[in-house]
Design a protein around this nucleic acid. Structure first.
Lengths: 345, 345
DNA sequence: GTGAAAGCGCTAACAC
DNA sequence: GTGTTAGCGCTTTCAC
């Protein structure tokens, strides 16, 4: 970066004071400086267009006021709002974000190394997968590096984590279906080998049913993979069943969209012939045909909460005991569950 | 960050050499060092778990190997893939990303200042709006700060910019509609006062029509705002017209989804009663009912190209003359334009 | 082939 | 109230 060559020395020279003084007035340190001196320093800095070098500052303060945000699957639409939440509080607190994406374990480890080399003050890990080993995170913890994980299944005491209540959301959503008078509720699950959320959403569905003393029909558990096509194909399989359900809990939004299309292609009317609900509330959920009844995930909130937690840690020391925060989802009733239909008739 | 207190000195001490030597072997500098010395240094670094302090390094090299990515509207789904492209090439080249989001001019200016304070080596500006003044960018240019803009209407010589060919995309897409035998093509425009892309897409639609000597019907130019609801309402207005078009060019994907729903709600069959096409190809475009024929924007490519441009600049000096790159869109033919329908009959 | 030392721009003791 | 100075951890001349 060119031209950035105006240093604190230049300001000191121009103001006719020492660099120490300049540093003090510019940082509003407790030390008392004369009004006229302060004035001269300020105006010198102004006219020289002085811009403090944060790198040099970090050097001596041994802190960079930046945090590392490591994301896997940058392309996942869920991450934008999380990042937004993170960014909002971090910016307000004067912290910067250095971004790293990782597609697998090795690259995540690599990213952490790189970011530590860049001296980030802490980390936020934002991920979806549950298959990752967490050894490198435990190592971080052991070394006292501040970090918080979002949506990461890491069952180890003392890890600060933010989770979204997939289980509760699925349970309530299923309950909502039952409230509409359904009792034949099928599910399209996520990849339960890979994602903790898929396990929890399945578990929530089951619990929602059993809460009302309904035993799920094994045929009505269709395996999916969280993709559009997965949802499409799952419904195709479902429709081949002789005994069809009257309601369908789809484990995520992408599959729900695929399911809707599959249903439409097969001439099955939603919600008339079958009700559909899902977890995750993308902007377009209100504009599918029919619009989707969903449980909105607290994505932006997760971002804000994690950032807040980390910043507090950085300022006041680690939370004791470690936080384990479960964020609730919000029911968005639209057309696909048939609630409106029912109320009309 | 704790524990990070193993410095180059420690390595030097342990290896029984000078810090200069350590630096040389660790950076693979041209200087010759004895094989045994090198060996000792390497193993010392290894056993001490030495991690070079990038901040200190930046201090003396006067370069941080980071670039500032400034985005407005973090929530815009278009930006994820762009960021992905940027990240991919930057990581490969050893550069880091520091992220800044800005919602308006003042916050963008603020972000630039902050990032310059953090000594980023260059900038990528990713934005949508055309209403911003560009004075601060011109100032950057004047000061020799490397930067490239994506999708930003800044008509000033010497600015390196990446644009997506909205005009060409709209023109070709309209042509595609005409190829299907339509001649009554309406459009729902974007906010032409705010977005350059809206102007260009409108212009492309017009040009596509005139290329075939068709004069557009003024009634068939419906003003929209790039939102789902905007698309929904626009179609409502369109349907009140006595003389309806047989095809509809919607300026962006969100409005197209809104339009589809509006049409469905009104019982108008797509593509049978009216064909629909749009610009922008979100993942769900293939799973709407009917699936959307679109022009896919080269978003990830824009990210990659901009990053490559910037990195080359950082390494070899500014491109002469400045690059002005126009990226083409890709036609994705699906159901909503009626092409398949036509071929079947 | 290797070591010593001068900074990079800044903050924070410590003097006065 | 203000100035001086010793580093923060590293790279890179310049000696040897």
């Amino acid at each position: 970066m060119k031209n950035s060559t105006v240093t604190i020395r230049d300001v000191a020279l121009k103001a006719g004071v020492s660099v120490g003084t300049v540093s003090h007035v510019l940082n509003g340190s407790p030390r008392h400086v004369g009004a006229s001196t302060r004035e001269r320093v300020l105006s010198a800095a102004q006219t020289l267009q002085y811009r403090p070098n944060a790198i040099a500052r970090s050097m001596v303060k041994r802190a960079t006021a930046t945090i590392g945000l490591v994301i896997n699957e940058l392309s996942n639409p869920l991450f934008m709002p999380v990042t937004e939440g993170v960014e909002a509080v971090l910016r307000k607190e004067g912290y910067g974000i250095v971004l790293a994406s990782s597609n697998d374990m090795p690259s995540e480890i690599q990213a952490v190394e790189t970011l530590r080399g860049r001296q980030v003050d802490g980390f936020i890990f934002m991920s979806l997968s549950t298959i990752y080993s967490v050894d490198h995170l435990l190592k971080l913890k052991e070394q006292g590096v501040p970090f918080v994980v979002i949506n990461r299944s890491i069952d180890h005491p003392g890890i600060n984590r933010i989770l979204m209540d997939d289980y509760g959301a699925a349970c309530r959503l299923t309950g909502h279906l039952l409230d509409q008078g359904h009792s034949n509720v099928a599910t399209i699950t996520g990849p339960r080998q890979l994602r903790r959320s898929a396990v929890n959403r399945y578990g929530g569905w089951l619990a929602g049913l059993r809460e009302r003393h309904i035993e799920p029909c094994p045929d009505w558990i269709i395996g999916g993979d969280y993709t559009f096509e997965g949802g499409y194909q799952a419904v195709k399989r479902l429709l081949q069943l002789s005994h069809r359900p009257t309601a369908l809990f789809v484990a995520n939004e992408s599959m729900a969209v695929g399911a809707l299309k599959s249903l439409a292609d097969a001439g099955v009317k939603v919600p008339h012939d079958i009700a559909v609900v899902t977890i995750g509330d993308p902007p377009f959920a209100a504009y599918t045909s029919p619009s989707l009844t969903t449980m909105a995930l607290p994505v932006e909130e997760a971002g804000r909460v994690s950032a807040r937690l980390l910043v507090d840690w950085l300022k006041d020391g680690p939370p004791e005991p470690a936080k384990d925060i479960l964020l609730a989802c919000t029911l968005k009733v639209r057309e696909s569950c048939g609630a409106y239909l029912k109320n009309q008739t």
